[in-house]
Each structure stands twice: as structure tokens, then as C-alpha cells.
């Protein structure tokens, strides 16, 4: 069985390194819809992919990955919204883990929204 001893070792290693995170005006918010509609259409792997990658790439001081309830567009779930300070909100629809990884690379790191996945470019 994995024990809590290991966690103590991690804590000892981390202490002092972790600064207080402040959500200031340079923080980007990434929101995944996690109501029944989102979960049923596959939002869980989208959320875990995004939060894993943000952690792996040490972006937690710039990007917060969080979740919300029903956005009201259930037929387009899984939905990911990207809110960058000073920029209009970008809504991505019909996400999956691969598309989410692409958005992290090209939009959140590269700075260019991936137009082909956006709600705005969907043929409604």
C-alpha cells in the first residue's frame, strides 16, 4: 500500500519553493463545463489533460484550469472556455483530450486561438 510517508517527503522537498499564488490581472482562466451534459460527452479526460499539462509545463502561476456547471450549450459539449485578461473570451466546442492538448500548445502557450475548434467558427 502507498502510504502518507511519501507525501511527507514531498512536502519537505517542496516547502520554501512554493510561493503564494495570486490571481492577478495577468492570470488566464481555462474553464471546462462539468455538468451532466459535459461529463456524459467526455469532459473528464479534457479536464485532466489540461490540468496535467499545465502542471507538467510549470504554468500554474499563469494559468488556472477550473470547472463550471452547465454553460447552456449541451449539444456542443465538452466545452472549454479560455479567458485571457484584456481579450475576448474564446469558446471551444466538442473537445477531446487531443484537441485540448493542441489548444494548450497553440493558444495558451503560442498565443493564437485555434479557430477551427471555436464556437464562432462552427456552422450553427
Amino acid at each position: 500500500m502507498k502510504t502518507l510517508e511519501e507525501l511527507r517527503a514531498i512536502r519537505d522537498r517542496m516547502q520554501g519553493q512554493v510561493g503564494l499564488r495570486s490571481e492577478d490581472d495577468t492570470h488566464t482562466r481555462v474553464v471546462v463545463g462539468m455538468a451532466t451534459c459535459g461529463i456524459a460527452s467526455g469532459a473528464r479526460p479534457v479536464l485532466t489533460t489540461l490540468s496535467d499539462l499545465v502542471q507538467q509545463k510549470h504554468l500554474t502561476d499563469k494559468i488556472t484550469v477550473t470547472q463550471t456547471g452547465c454553460i447552456g450549450l449541451c449539444q456542443y459539449e465538452p466545452i472549454v472556455e479560455v479567458m485571457e485578461p484584456g481579450k475576448p473570451k474564446v469558446t471551444y466546442i466538442k473537445m477531446n483530450a487531443e484537441k485540448a492538448a493542441e489548444i494548450l500548445e497553440r493558444h495558451l502557450i503560442g498565443g493564437h486561438p485555434v479557430e477551427k475548434y471555436t464556437l464562432a467558427s462552427a456552422n450553427l
Binding site: 514531498i10 503564494l20 490540468s51 496535467d52 500554474t60
Partner: peptide, 13 residues
């Protein structure tokens, strides 16, 4: 155990 270290710190998660 963690004190102030957040759960989404890569090693912790």
C-alpha cells in the same frame, strides 16, 4: 501534512 502546499503542485498531484 502538506501545510500550505497546494494539491495541484505537480509532485503532489
Amino acid at each position: 501534512i502538506l501545510g500550505g502546499v497546494p494539491f495541484d503542485e505537480p509532485d503532489v498531484s
